[in-house]
Amino acid sequence: MEFKELIEQKIREKFAGRNFSFSEFRGELTLTVDKKDIVQVCTLLKDDGDLQFKLCEDITAIDHARRTDRFTVVYHIFSLKNKFRLSVKADVDESDCSIDSVTPVWKTANWHERETFDMYGVRFKNHPDLRRMYMPEEFEYHPLRKDFPLMGIPGSLSLPKSPLNPPKGDLK
């Protein structure tokens, strides 16, 4: 049996009656699931003896700039045993902009999820340390959202306090 069919079969067995779909583009298999199932699906994909998606390569989000299901969180996982890459996707609506964290499944998800939160503002529930990855902690916006202008927002990045750059009005 082809490995792709094996994945489909395993998911069908375990997630009968739930929403999921498979699609393929340029030979890459994508599995789309509901966001409430994401941790269960990832646990199955990692721990199943035949699948063994042990390496989580990347987690990111797409901002579709649409009214419903504005964001899609995308997971790229790789099976070292079968040398196969799978994308897992879950839609996230802007009104409840959060999804369960997969850090219990893959430790490496920690920084990927921090980066996704920093860039898109998608919050990851049960994340151990959800800070911003690149932007300063005081920054109010999420720069990779489509409504953030390319030129940035003037005044949104404050210069750090330093002896050479004292706060205004405090010069002696």
């Binding site: 390496l55 893959w106 430790k107």
Partner: peptide, 23 residues
């Protein structure tokens, strides 16, 4: 693997994973 290391850092831990060979 769990920490997502790749490249020479991963192969230094005895995991034979190289995309040139794997894919």
């Amino acid at each position: 693997v769990d920490m997502g290391l790749t490249g020479p850092s991963l192969r230094g831990s005895g995991v034979e994973f190289d995309l040139r060979r794997a894919q």
